[in-house]
Amino acid sequence: MIELKNVNKSYEINKNNIVNALQNINISIQEGELFVLKGASGSGKSTVLSLIAALSKPTSGEVIVDTKQISKLPDNFACEYRRDNIGFIFQKYNLIPTLSVSENILLPLVPLNLPAQEAQEKLQRVMKMFDISHKAEAIVKNLSGGEQQRVAIARANVNDPKIIIADEPTANLDERLSLSFIEILKELKALKKTIVIATHDPLFFNLDCVDREIELHKGNILS
């Protein structure tokens, strides 16, 4: 269960210029739910995702995941929390372009120092699941956008996290690829993962598999 309680987030650009990205947000997401955040550009969707992944901290309010106060975690614990619980599919994928597909997917496992065989098994499982095995040794920067996204999805799942977060997952995809992404979402949902998606793509609106939608507008929730 993910809960945001009275969350405010503001960015100080300079002394006289403060952006209120989120204002008094309350959201709660149940385990196993597929949850969609809608909203125009700049409405604060990515900011909500960052807070859930402990990539940033709220200016005020609380973020609670499974009774844990994510918003109060010291940096090192936030990293550990992220490593063990969150699979983040970034809007720009955030792959390391000069590494190969398998190297990128293995990155989250590096600090875990797992036995080589275990790491390999995890790698093969996700590469197969997201259909990228045939490109295992390719350098990421030479891949197409759709392939890069599958690498990003595989990387987000390699450590088998409970929560999957995707920021504008279809922004760079054509319709066919977008539809196949929705198939992937269904698969993940079948694995009982909690999924949070930020998007303004109408493709997601009123989908059967989506359990709940919320729309953000200038940092506030539209009911």
Partner: peptide, 16 residues
């Protein structure tokens, strides 16, 4: 910088 940010975002700790 970006590479460090990515590593951190996918769960590497500062000391890693």
């Amino acid at each position: 910088k970006r590479e460090i940010g990515i590593l951190k975002a996918i769960g590497w700790k500062i000391d890693d």
